[in-house]
Nucleic acid binder design. Sequence first.
DNA 1: CATTAATCTTAACATAAGTTGTTGCCCTTC
DNA 2: GAAGGGCAACAACTTATGTTAAGATTAATG
Lengths: 255, 255
Amino acid sequence: MLPARLHPAGHEGPPPGVEAQPLLRRLGRLATLSAAEVSIITEACRGPLRELPARGEIHAEGACPPPAALVSGWAARVRMLADGRRQIVAFLLPGDLIGRPPPCLPAPCAALALTRVLLADAQPLFAASRFPQAPPTSGLARALRAAELQEEVLLRDQVVRLGRQTAYERLASLLLELRQRLEAAGLAEPNRFALPLTQEVLADALGLSIVHINRTVQQMRRDRLIELRGGQVIILQQETLQSVADWQDMAGLQD
Amino acid sequence: MLPARLHPAGHEGPPPGVEAQPLLRRLGRLATLSAAEVSIITEACRGPLRELPARGEIHAEGACPPPAALVSGWAARVRMLADGRRQIVAFLLPGDLIGRPPPCLPAPCAALALTRVLLADAQPLFAASRFPQAPPTSGLARALRAAELQEEVLLRDQVVRLGRQTAYERLASLLLELRQRLEAAGLAEPNRFALPLTQEVLADALGLSIVHINRTVQQMRRDRLIELRGGQVIILQQETLQSVADWQDMAGLQD
DNA sequence: CATTAATCTTAACATAAGTTGTTGCCCTTC
DNA sequence: GAAGGGCAACAACTTATGTTAAGATTAATG
């Protein structure tokens, strides 16, 4: 089910001192942050970090964990069926938030580390912004709220992918989503990014079998839309990929 | 694409004077409401209502409409692909909320009436609770927040359905979800409820073709799991249906 | 450097689901 | 009460995707 190892690209931690970059970049794009708010974020990411190896469980299904920020590494929200089928509901990238401040419902998904991950305690962020009861003047509150809304947009994209797109289209769409999100976190060049996922993980995210994912990747390579080797993706024909994926740039990345 | 008519069951409005029942029941289950809050809800549902016929567009994709409450009738969040494929992302039942108070991102989905619907202006609710910046003492704020979180749970269920379940399982799962939600709104008996949807709408929700939905319904009838005629569903074997659907009662319906 | 274990790749085959076309029923409407 | 249109039902055939199984790479380990 789960890969025992992933691509080496996923094993590298961030250089020391820049831990806050993805979170800061992402939230900074969602709202204008005051200097005080920036330092709250920086502090949180420098504070004691929780480390988990690949395949580690960040929290179980049904838990209601305190909010955390993914500082480095990749993770996923996962749901299992009784017979072992697995669906990855969403990918979590550096700069993403996991868990919500109370009051919250028990999480319908487990969260799973796909690579080695570092997690920061995000409670100070929510406390500082008194989310979700923040004054409208707080840039941080607006950013946290926007991040939450954005996640919902991604979920709906995922529904459309799984419900109405072919394997080829699903893969194209996912790659474009990941590129855009990584770019927002400052982790992608325009046409190239690290993808530390096995084909099995891709299959579980796209609702396909591993064999069919492989077929689809091969085809996309033959069509010269992408290169994909050693955990690195290069997008060769962005426009074609976008039209295949029925891509609509989500305007919601900015405030 | 869209059905021109739906089952006659969907055409009936609520008896006058009980418009607020579904919304009130639902929110009341999510948190304890003060008398003042109850009257705010009741007032909103008695206020001037917006009426739309079946197939009417509640709001377009990309809009950022003011929050509304669905008082009666069924609606859906819908996304279209460029070539006309349609995916129903979520169903909206009486008592559900549509749109969010600002700040909000442009809606990634259009909202579409599936039957004749009545919509109430929900802004007073959010204003009264100063959502999402409400004091934790406000039951209304907690209820609105819980409704929002619950919608996200439903979205994730939908992802699992579309990604990893067979047609038969998807249908079972959806029927159980609808029964539970209708019950929470006071609109379902334990084993029987109105389902004013054409098979085409079911197909677009479950990511299947209309013909295959029909096959699946037939099979489920032959297996004596359900009856489905004239827009009425009767669940004959709830337990079997639940095990087919891999149903896990979402504990999150109460506060 | 040898060894093992993951992961990727490919082939052959099986099956769930899509497509097309036809029929019949039940509304509605004239 | 005849006609038309939407919807449900059913059959025949096609296609996308799943399954199983076997090599071929590649990365981790000692």
